[in-house]
Every structure is written in structure tokens, then in C-alpha cells.
Amino acid sequence: MRGGTIMQEKSTINPKSESTRERKGNTATSAIELTSVAQEVFSQIAKSTSRVVQQAASILEEEVADGIVAAKEVEDKLFDTKDIRKESKEALFGRFRNDAHEVVDIFMDLVGVAAKYGTDLTQRMITFTVPGTKKEEAPVSDVPKLEMPEPMKPGSATEVPMELENKSREVTDVFSMYCTDLISNQGNRMLAGNISFAPETIKIGPGQREKVLVKVSVPRNTPAGSYSGLVQATNLDQLRAILIIRIV
């Protein structure tokens, strides 16, 4: 019966292909038609849907669900590709910058990254030490930025989610996140007590992720400016990010 279905498909294709060939000056060597080999193959599966094909179809569905869909979810977390496709190159990168706040992956590779990210406080404002590792300089750009999506007004409050991923093979100790005082580009200060994190204590297994809310409350008398401070964690020298808040 399936062979009949295919033959029907063939018959709908052939007339079109003939006209196409006339228009295109014989670009195709021949219309799509079933060769004897194809007919033989089809006759085999015509009798019944092959078990191996059914099995393959089932596996494919599982793998697609696990693979491409999962990859798409990761992509969607970063930005909406459908919207991006409509935008120009400049808009693309602008949008990337604006959307990056939604998910900030702070990688904590307890083994390899520690030494790489070692930074001298006197030169980079950030420092940490890891027992048994040598301090090395790292560019500031290696430190993730956590930028508030919208400018904030004095007296306002907001919460921004971020995600922590432990890419190492070891579970972390229980840790808490904290932020230094924020300093503006005008030299003004916003005290660390205006920044908090939820949950207050976190523990992340190897390869696992945890969501953390960054809560910001801007005091009423805060002067306008771009404020930044360093987010760090207790018991976890490898985790840091620069928190940036624009006050208007």
C-alpha cells in the first residue's frame, strides 16, 4: 500500500518536472521517478512497517528531544533568535549586551580556572588566592559582568536573576554571596547593604546550576551615575562578577 502512496507522489511530481525542464532547458537529467532498485526497496517495506524503522523513529524522537531542544533552550536563554534575525548586525550586538543580564553564567571551575583567573588587587581591583596555585594576571574582561537591565531611580528597587554553574567535578562548600560597596564614575558610593542575594546560602553539585536573585535597593539620595562593585562568594575564591547599576 505504501508503494501505491509513493507512486501517487511520483505522479504528482512528474508533470511538474516536465514543465520545469522545458522552462529551464533540461537542467534535470530526468524527472524523479522510481528506479527498479527503488521499487524493490519499496516493495520490501510495503508489506509492513519495518521494526527497525519504527525503532529508529522512536530513538530519533528521544534524541531530538534531548539534544536539539535542549540546545535551543540554552540559546533562547541568551537571546530570542527569531527577533534577532530581523535586526541589523549592530542591533544584534546591542541586543546581546542588553539581554546578557538575564542569565549570567559564572563559571566556577575549581580545578583549572582558579590559577588562570588569579588577579593582582593593586592592578585590577580584584584579588584572590588559591592554595598551591601561583598568582597570575588576567584581563578584566574575563570577569563576568552583571548589569542591571534598566537604569534605576533613587528610591527604587529591583531583582535580577542570574545563574551559577559549577563546571568542576567537585561539589562546592556551602557559600554565601556578597557585594562590595559600589562606586560611581563620579566617585560616589552606594553601600553594600543595599545589595542582597537570595537564597542566602548555596551549595552546587558538580556540573549543576543554581539560580540566584540579585536584589538591589537604591537609597533615595543616591546621585546619578554608573555604579559598580565586585560580587564575590564566601569559601569560593573562583567566583566573582562585576555588578553594574546605572542610576538616573
Partner: peptide
Amino acid sequence: GAALKEFFTAYGALPDTR
């Protein structure tokens, strides 16, 4: 055989070209 059948799903609606 199943691949041949799926060929028509994937490409069947396209204009006939080389």
C-alpha cells in the same frame, strides 16, 4: 526504503532541478 519515502517529505515540494 524509509529514507526514500522521507525524501519526498524533505524535498518533494521543491521545483524539479538537477
